[in-house]
Every structure is written in structure tokens, then in C-alpha cells.
Simulated scan of single mutants.
Amino acid sequence: MDLFALRYWKPTTWSKPDLLALLPGLVVGIGLGAYVLKGFDRHAIEIAMAAITILFAGLWWRGGNPVTERPRSLPKAIVAGTASGVTTMVAHSGGPPLAMYLLPLGLPKQIYAGTTSLFFTIGNLMKAAPWLMVAPRSSSFWGLMLLCLPAAGLGVWAGWHLHQRLDQAQLYRACYALLTITAVKLL
């Protein structure tokens, strides 16, 4: 999916200052996540991530759904990048920590989507080797991956077209709604 997405989200849609702040944490988080996979209960991490995400999204919904523009914070970016790295490695759910950092910045919708896309392209490339070391090595696993490939391209294409139709406020509402759905799924 990431490689399909880069066709749409070009370098002009990436927030380079945010990526520079987030990526070091992502590297550390993926390393921690690989370690966590071996010794911790991934379901406990999913529950903790879900609770934090529900709180974050709930506060936004309760506050009247504003598209805010808060200043960047290097410490928050490092924490978000690290948390995203751990949760993407452990539960394939690195989106909530990243969204918790990026959404309050009030980035234009193209910059938000492009930055998210590149962040996960880099993260997924980094976690591929460690994740595949712990993944099942069956022909059905690889067959499922091949079967999903066309759906990935179609999903990115559909997401791009939906993104073009939504204005900034609609996109932010959709992002917070998807965060809530993701949290419920993690629970």
C-alpha cells in the first residue's frame, strides 16, 4: 500500500520539519516493538493504546470538533514517533500515536495525508525484516499477501479520491472518527 500511496503523496505533501522530528522516535520505537513482541503481551499494549486513543478522540469530540493549529513540540514528536513505532510493530496500529501528534497541528489536509503516508512507508520498510522473522512462514500466509495486493492499490486509489472530495473540517472529523473506530477495534 505504501508504494501505491507514494504515487499520490509527492514530496510537496510532506511536512519535512515534522518528519525530521518524528522519524528518530520511529526508529527507536520499532526496535523496542521488536523486543516487546518477544516478551510482552501484545493485547495489553493494544488495550493501553485503545484507552489513550479513546480519551484523545473523546476530548476532541467533546470540544466541538475544532481544527486547531498548535505549535510543534520536539518532545511530543519524539514520544509520538516512538509510540507509533512500538504500536506499529506490535499491533500494526501505529496510526493513533502519529495522529495524536499531527492532528492538533492543524496541517492542511494534503500535508497531513502526505506526511502520514511517508512516515508509514519508512516505518513499514524498517519493520519488514524484524516482523517477517516472527511471522508465520506458511504458503497460505504468502498467498494471502499476494491476494491482498490488488486490494491495496484499489484502496489507496479510493482513499485518494475520497480525500479530494472532503474539505479540511470533514477530513479531520473522518480522522477522529477512524481513530475512535481503531480504538474500539483494538479493545
Rank of each mutant, 00 (worst) to 15 (best):
E69Y: 12
I78K: 08
P71E: 12
L105Y: 02
A99S: 07
L59N: 05
L98E: 01
M89P: 03
M89I: 04
S93M: 13
S84M: 10
P66F: 08
T87H: 08
T82V: 12
L107R: 01
P97C: 09
N65Y: 15
L55D: 08
M89Y: 01
G95V: 10
A57T: 01
P108K: 14
P108T: 14
V86L: 05
I78M: 11
P66K: 12
S93N: 09
G94D: 06
P75C: 07
P108L: 14
P71Q: 08
T88Q: 12
L59A: 08
G95M: 08
L59F: 06
L102Y: 02
L105P: 02
L59C: 06
P75K: 04
P66M: 11
T88C: 13
I54K: 00
P96Q: 06
R70G: 14
G95A: 15
M100R: 07
G85D: 02
G63R: 07
V79T: 09
R70W: 10
W60G: 02
G95D: 11
A99P: 03
G63I: 06
G64D: 13
P71F: 08
E69C: 13
R70P: 04
H92D: 13
S84G: 14
K76C: 10
M100N: 06
S93F: 04
A99H: 08
M89S: 09
G64L: 10
K76W: 13
R72D: 05
S93T: 11
P104D: 09
L107Y: 04
S73Q: 05
T87Q: 10
W61I: 09
P97R: 04
V86W: 03
P108I: 13
S73D: 10
P108G: 15
R72Y: 06
W61P: 06
A57R: 00
G106T: 14
L98K: 01
T88P: 13
I78W: 12
L74I: 12
F56P: 00
A80F: 10
L74M: 11
P71C: 11
G64F: 14
E69R: 15
P97V: 04
V86P: 02
G81W: 09
P104W: 03
G58I: 00
S84K: 11
L105E: 03
S93D: 07
G94M: 10
R62T: 10
P96K: 06
G58N: 01
L107I: 05
G94F: 08
P71A: 09
S84I: 14
A99M: 13
G58E: 01
G58M: 00
V90W: 01
Y101E: 08
G94N: 07
G63Y: 12
I78E: 04
L103N: 00
I54R: 00
T88F: 13
G64N: 13
G64T: 13
L103G: 00
T68D: 11
T82K: 05
V90D: 01
L107H: 05
L107M: 06
S73G: 06
P97T: 04
P71R: 08
R62Q: 14
V67K: 03
P96S: 06
F56Q: 00
S73N: 03
A83V: 13
H92G: 14
L59R: 10
P108Q: 15
P96Y: 05
L55Y: 14
L98W: 01
A83R: 09
G106S: 14
P104V: 04
A91G: 02
G106E: 14
I54S: 00
M100Q: 05
L107E: 10
L59W: 06
